[in-house]
Design a binder for these strands. Structure first.
Lengths: 126, 126
DNA sequence: TACATTTATAAGTGACTACTTATGGAAGGA
DNA sequence: TCCTTCCATAAGTAGTCACTTATAAATGTA
């Protein structure tokens, strides 16, 4: 299970990343931080850190008897890249067209609007 | 299991989103597209579509006897937002400072470089 | 050396998940 | 109405995962 999104799929691991996003910390500190939010054992955290490391989401550095973990932007960038590629191809045209229409009709008043695609289906309530 | 990242944690569901990113499609078309890449049953796809819908990652629209699915940007934006918030706080300063240094030393030649944080630990090979 | 501290690994277990086949239900066409 | 098509749900199952306790390995300290 070495995938980035597989690693991000677990809430505890996401919390680990949130903890580490405040700055690099030792494994023990991560354990302490996680235990402040709920009961989890030290081996449990260690196993999560391993998954995150294998997914490229954190880095480790040995410092004496401790191991200092830090967020690895490489893994995060991989996730961001996938999400970016998933963007609606039409979306790239919508904003420019809207901007052009505004330009033509009203002159150079740059109003930023947040309209979505017009015929877009809504989420079903079923 | 209604979380966005939980839904994204499955490779098959990510493939469904990739298929839908090319444009809205009926459930049957998604089944056909998925079966071209590997064996999966129609109910299997239907269940994945349900998870994606509950996570806010796809929308459904009934069209006669078919159900047309489309990518829901709302869920994707939620994922993107979390990843954005996870950014290294120091990273926000690095680029501007680099840009300023370039500005001062060389004038207004905007060269985009991809340097990482200088003292950043490498991934361990253990 | 002996002990303490820090962290990873081993082994076992319950729960969840992704899949299957079987079935039902809704809409369209004869 | 009958049949077909499209899709969701039901039920069951094998595999995976996240957790636990117990233990080992490595470094620092008295």
């Amino acid at each position: 299970m070495t995938g980035v999104f597989e690693a991000l799929g677990d809430a505890t691991r996401r919390r680990v990343l949130e903890v580490l996003s405040a700055g690099q910390q030792s494994a023990g500190d991560v354990v302490t931080a996680l235990q402040a939010h709920g009961a989890i054992s030290q081996p449990g955290v260690s196993q999560h850190l391993r998954v995150l490391r294998e997914a490229g989401l954190v880095t480790v550095r040995a410092e004496g008897t401790r191991r200092v973990y830090a967020v690895d932007e490489a893994g995060l960038d991989a996730a961001r890249a996938w999400l970016a590629l998933l963007a609606d191809p039409l979306a790239a045209f919508e904003q420019p067209l809207d901007a052009l229409a505004t330009e033509v009709a009203r002159g150079k008043r740059a109003g930023r609007h947040t309209n979505r695609s017009p015929g877009r289906p809504e989420r079903m309530t079923s």
